[in-house]
């Protein structure tokens, strides 16, 4: 008698994960190699073009380029939200791994965290365009 229990095969999940890792790698290399501030092939923000104001995501590509090249201060100036969010995302991944290892519901994220992150995004988008913050 076989004691181990059948495991459900997840080919779609593995494929998706591989696409994600591959895409992330290529994207990171492009961002590392080519500065979005100097190269025109990167997508441009509609909101910034239309209004001249900065959306919450504005500057994140340039910030990523600076981060990948080790320039923390420059990255912070381009988009402080992104620079703050990245280590938090790392912490969330660690939390996920720890919960999973303990057999807990790793996908359970307190709703408050998600909703407050949305609020932070919106508030950041407003405050960064106020003349006071400079």
């Amino acid at each position: 008698m076989t004691t181990s229990q059948p495991i459900r095969a997840r080919p779609a999940r593995t494929f998706g994960l591989m696409v994600l890792i591959l895409g992330g790698g290529v994207g990171a290399w492009l961002l590392f190699r080519f500065d979005p501030a100097a190269h025109g092939f990167y997508p441009v923000c509609f909101f910034h073009q239309a209004t001249g104001l900065q959306c919450p995501g504005c500057g994140s590509l340039r910030a990523m380029h600076q981060l990948l090249n080790g320039h923390w201060a420059a990255a912070w100036r381009f988009n402080p939200l992104l620079v703050t969010a990245l280590p938090l995302c790392g912490l969330m991944v660690i939390r996920f791994a720890v919960l999973k290892a303990n057999g807990r519901d790793a996908w359970h994220i307190p709703r408050l965290w998600l909703w407050s992150s949305l609020v932070i995004v919106v508030v950041f988008g407003i405050t960064r365009n106020l003349p006071l913050v400079h």
Partner: peptide, 16 residues
């Protein structure tokens, strides 16, 4: 969870 996170990100990057 993934859907909601992507929803928040899509609001953040709706301009690009």
């Amino acid at each position: 969870v993934t859907g909601m996170v992507l929803g928040i990100v899509s609001v953040m990057f709706s301009c690009c």
